[in-house]
Amino acid sequence: MNIFRFLGDISHLSAIIILLLKIWKSRSCAGISGKSQLLFAIVFTTRYLDLFTNFISFYNTSMKVVYVASSYATVWMIYSKFKATYDGNHDTFRVEFLIVPTAILSFLVNHDFTPLEILWTFSIYLESVAILPQLFMVSKTGEAETITSHYLFALGIYRTLYLFNWIWRYQFEEFFDLIAIVAGLVQTVLYCDFFYLYITKVLKGKKLSLPA
């Protein structure tokens, strides 16, 4: 464990908690893409299948349980509990254009042609593009609530910190994983536009609004 990975995990956890609290407290999922949350639930499910078979540490297991449980809770709130507030008209990104190519790619490019490894690879590829429906929705509505932009910032920063974690581990622990690194780079690049807007607008107290 190194500081970058730890801060990355904390940032990821706080993003998940921010979103859960936003929906639960405001009893509304306005502005939130249910499709992205569905993709995250798939990402965690396909990545943590070894949750019960491969114990690494209490921290690792408990974080995985929290991630999986909270992602399902978020999907449940959006599509069931508060579905009346779900803005389906603006959440129109075609997720099959994300799921199918990443699934095919995970069969073609992976470290080991075994079910668990292919599912892990699929989850890595899918995670790198899972935020697209949410970013697409923000661009369609032209704006995002401030709390939603904090959620997106924390979520984007987590994988950026993981990039530093991989540099650290390459340097000091003598290994790297090209699949995770390339997917992490793609994921971080997708946030660049949002990071720019967040830093130039939200941090100055303005509302996040995209040029429609």
């Binding site: 990821h12 491969n54 290994f175 994983d177």
Partner: peptide, 10 residues
């Protein structure tokens, strides 16, 4: 450099 043995990451 050994590759891909960081299944200890989330």
């Amino acid at each position: 450099k050994r590759e891909n043995c960081h299944k200890d990451e989330l």
